[in-house]
Design a protein around this nucleic acid. Structure first.
Lengths: 188, 188
DNA sequence: ACACTAAACGGAGACGTCCCCGATTTGCTT
DNA sequence: AAGCAAATCGGGGACGTCTCCGTTTAGTGT
């Protein structure tokens, strides 16, 4: 009955998932690791890796696809507990912390922004949706402008993190995020 | 009498300057060019290049050391002609244009910010000084906050340019810079 | 069960970046 | 003019990215 089979052959799917798992482990270890190294660890050729994930960002996004889910719940909780602008600020900090523990994610977001692909890919997309939600709440409350593109905010967030994402730059990052959030408020 | 020797041997100085000139030419051509390629073009070994400029940023900063001077005059002119906040916004656009024509400068500024060296090196330093001047004028006029660290603003500027510095992203960059400048105004 | 085809694999290799080292050259100093 | 320390030369090598193409394999029809 020609089942509704997946577009991927079984071995391809297996390799793909094994690559993601291996990459997740490698990234989590904190060590810098080459893509070829990940392929080797996963026991596949580098050609296989690049066929599944043409760019480094594609792989990174897949690795963190599941891990980012909780951040959306965080956003909802923050919106319930605080004023929207403050919730946005707090969520950005959460995201900074989340990203700080995950090698490569900021660089990937920056690369996607720079090539106009922000919002493509699981992580980007989630971030964009969260920002949309919070910005909208802020606009309704009159605390944030209503003419802001979430993509712009996401791009700024990613770029600022790329520059000051290290734990020892927390204070600087805090000041920079304050500037950004204040810039989203309506002019008086 | 152990003469007041220059720190550099004459041939070393010559090579250094020749490398800068060659790099300036190569960068100006718009082509992507490898550091090894620059060394080859300059007719020196790559070892010589790396001895003079341990990192790519060191070379980039030297190449643009003279070219950035006019931007300071621009800042003064803008301050004379407009309100400080508007002058800041306009100057950032000038800088974006300036940087857009010069390969590698944004990446270098980002790298220096990320490693806490913003303000080191000729270009960084000039940017920081200009920002100081404009921020101070804005604070006096009451148009900008008086508690802003120029390094933070420079870092944001560099990071935003790294993400949206391409000519075809002008519109997005414009929106992002507006957010940043607005974030520097006092809360009402 | 078997053969066939398209999909997927794998790893060698081209290319670029950057570092390093030992032999050689340069140009001060006397 | 000779000695000597500083600096150069230039290529080899380690590492990373990414592509190409001959070979293998899964899944289909018979």
């Amino acid at each position: 009955m020609t089942a509704p089979r997946s577009a991927l052959r079984a071995d391809a799917r297996r390799n793909r998932e094994h690559l993601i798992a291996t990459a997740a482990e490698a990234f989590a270890s904190g060590q810098a690791i080459s893509l070829d190294g990940i392929a080797k660890r996963a026991g596949v050729g580098s050609g296989t890796l690049y066929r599944h994930f043409p760019t480094r960002e594609d792989l990174v996004e897949e690795v963190y696809r599941d891990q980012i889910r909780p951040l959306r719940d965080d956003a909802r909780a923050l919106l319930d507990a605080e004023q929207p602008a403050e919730a946005l600020h707090a969520w950005m900090h959460r995201f900074a912390e989340w990203a700080g523990e995950r090698r490569g994610i900021c660089e990937a977001l920056v690369a996607m922004s720079a090539s106009g692909r922000f919002g493509t890919g699981p992580v980007c997309d989630e971030v964009q949706q969260v920002l949309s939600m919070v910005l909208e709440a802020g606009a309704e409350a009159g605390e944030l402008r209503d003419d802001i593109d979430p993509v712009d905010v996401g791009s700024i967030l990613a770029s600022v993190l790329a520059v000051a994402g290290a734990p020892e730059q927390r204070a600087q990052l805090d000041r920079m995020l304050t500037i950004v959030v204040d810039g989203l408020r309506p002019r008086c």
